[in-house]
Each structure stands twice: as C-alpha cells, then as structure tokens.
C-alpha cells in the first residue's frame, strides 16, 4: 500500500495554497498510519473548521468534519462509544486553542485516548489572517495592523499542565520527525498532543515578511533545535523539538468501563 491509497484522490489537487504546511502535515500523518499498518476502517478523524480542518475530507478513513473548535468534543463522543477505534484529531491553532481551548484542556485532563495534532501556523488562515492565541507578541495580522500585544500560549506547556500524557513538537521542515512523533502519539494510550509548526505563506508569511514557503521552512530549521541537543542547551531562545512528556496514567475509557461494570452489578443504587 502507498500513501496515495489512504487519500480520497477524487478531491485532489487539494484546496490548500501552494506551499501550505498543512499538506505536509497530511503527508507525515499518512505515513505514520501506513508505517503502523493500521487499517483504514479502525481510524476515525474528526476536525473542526479552518484550512487545517479540511484535512478530514482528504483522508480515506471514517471522518467527521464538524464545528469550529469542537473536533475534540465529537472525538470524545466517538471514542467513548467505540473505544476500540483510533481517534485522530488535527486542528488549527485557532480551532484548538481559541474557540476550542476549553475542549482541549478538558480532553487533556481526562486523559482520553485521542491523538490531537495542532497544525500551528500562528494565524487564522481560512478567514483571512486574524491573529490567534498562538501568534505571540509583535506579529502582524489583519486584526493587528500595528502588530500584536498579546502573549501566546505555549502548546507544550499548556497540554502538559492540563494533564496530557504524551506531548511532542516538531515542524513541517522536519517531516520525517513528524511521522515518528505521530506514530508514538498514536501508540500511546492516553491523550497525546503533537504540535507541528506549519507555514501559512499566504497570510502569516506575507504579512510578516517571512518570504515564501521555502524561506519559512528554512526559518523553522533556524529557530528550533532537538531536545537534549547542545544547540538547544547553548541557545535557550530556540524552540525545542521532540518528546516533552511520555507517561502512564489511567485512561478515561478504561476507567469508564469500570464504572459501567459497577453500575451493572447494582452498586451505587
């Protein structure tokens, strides 16, 4: 089987702009599925709204294209009713952490076995380039013509504090690393978060003079370093890549099974 066999090819070429990082996230994710040997039939992808969220239309898995910010809520429902399925939830930074921020922290807190992928382009791509909670200070956006004054969330720190039991970060420049991290995230039993820095040359790149897609990728190489590397140790200003959290904790659906068993015995009556 090839990567192309996991696509709904009738919808290609896809709608993303030339050089959009979201396509590379799709590419890396499909390779993770392929290399793990998962069958299409055991995977459910839920997504919200955004350029990023269009990803669920392109994969030949079970898919739900839902409401802005609500991908994790739908995924939680699917997972609780059919815990044997693998839930993949790619989200934009706005989708995951602005409108969907509450669902994000509570899914992490429950440690439900879902793989969340934050496709972080630091902007609202679909609606024309408004700033997001991940833009950070000093970013130009249609809603910040004089540049932003808002602090950004750090996805890794937020997910960790909220209780996610697998947390990792990479970029679309590091495509092979993305595939490895997504594989580990899928295999992990519990709530997994993989943040992938993903370029939006059309809005973020243009407004912030970051150049074309190639130059934005070059920048990801420059501003990040692997966890545990000398480069990161010597330059704490760099953004770390790799696995930040990987720990065991009771998983929500398994705990819920126990509650069901108790209820069936008549306990609690």
């Amino acid at each position: 089987m090839a990567v192309q066999d996991l696509l709904r090819q009738r919808f290609f070429p896809h709608m993303w702009c030339p050089g959009c990082g979201h396509g590379t996230v799709l590419n890396s994710l499909l390779r993770a599925v392929l290399e793990l040997g998962l069958s299409k039939n055991e995977i459910v992808m839920t997504s919200g709204i955004g350029c990023s969220a269009r990803i669920s239309g392109y994969v030949d898995f079970h898919s739900l294209h839902t409401l802005h910010g609500r991908a994790l809520a739908f995924a939680t429902g699917v997972k609780l009713s059919k815990p044997e399925l693998t839930l993949l939830v790619p989200m934009g930074d706005g989708d995951a952490l602005a409108i969907g921020g509450n669902h994000f922290i509570h899914a992490a807190r429950r440690n439900i076995d879902i793989t969340a992928i934050v496709m972080n382009n630091r902007i609202y791509g679909m609606t024309g380039g408004q700033f997001s909670p991940l833009s950070g200070i000093g970013v130009k956006a249609t809603t910040a013509p004089y540049s932003t004054i808002d602090n950004n969330f750090d996805v890794v720190e937020l997910a960790t504090a909220a209780g996610a039991t697998f947390v990792a970060r990479s970029t679309t420049y590091h495509a092979r690393e993305c595939t490895e991290l997504i594989k580990k995230a899928i295999l992990h039993k519990g709530f997994s978060v993989v943040e992938i820095l993903s370029q939006c040359p059309t809005h973020f790149g243009r407004k912030n003079r970051e150049g074309d897609a190639g130059q934005m990728l070059e920048n990801y190489k420059k501003i990040t370093a692997k966890r545990g590397s000398k480069a990161l140790e010597e330059n704490p200003g760099l953004i770390g890549r790799g696995i930040f959290v990987e720990k065991e904790k009771p998983e929500y659906c398994q705990e819920y099974e126990k509650t069901i068993a108790l209820a069936m015995k008549g306990a609690g009556r």
Binding site: A2, G19, N27
Partner: peptide
C-alpha cells in the same frame, strides 16, 4: 533521501 517526497505539501512526488 526521500525528503522531496516527504515534504511535498501536495503529495505529488513518489
């Protein structure tokens, strides 16, 4: 090295 295939946002290279 496969990097062109892995990075292509349009899944256009094999």
């Amino acid at each position: 090295c496969m990097m062109c295939e892995l990075r292509c946002p349009d899944l256009a290279i094999e």
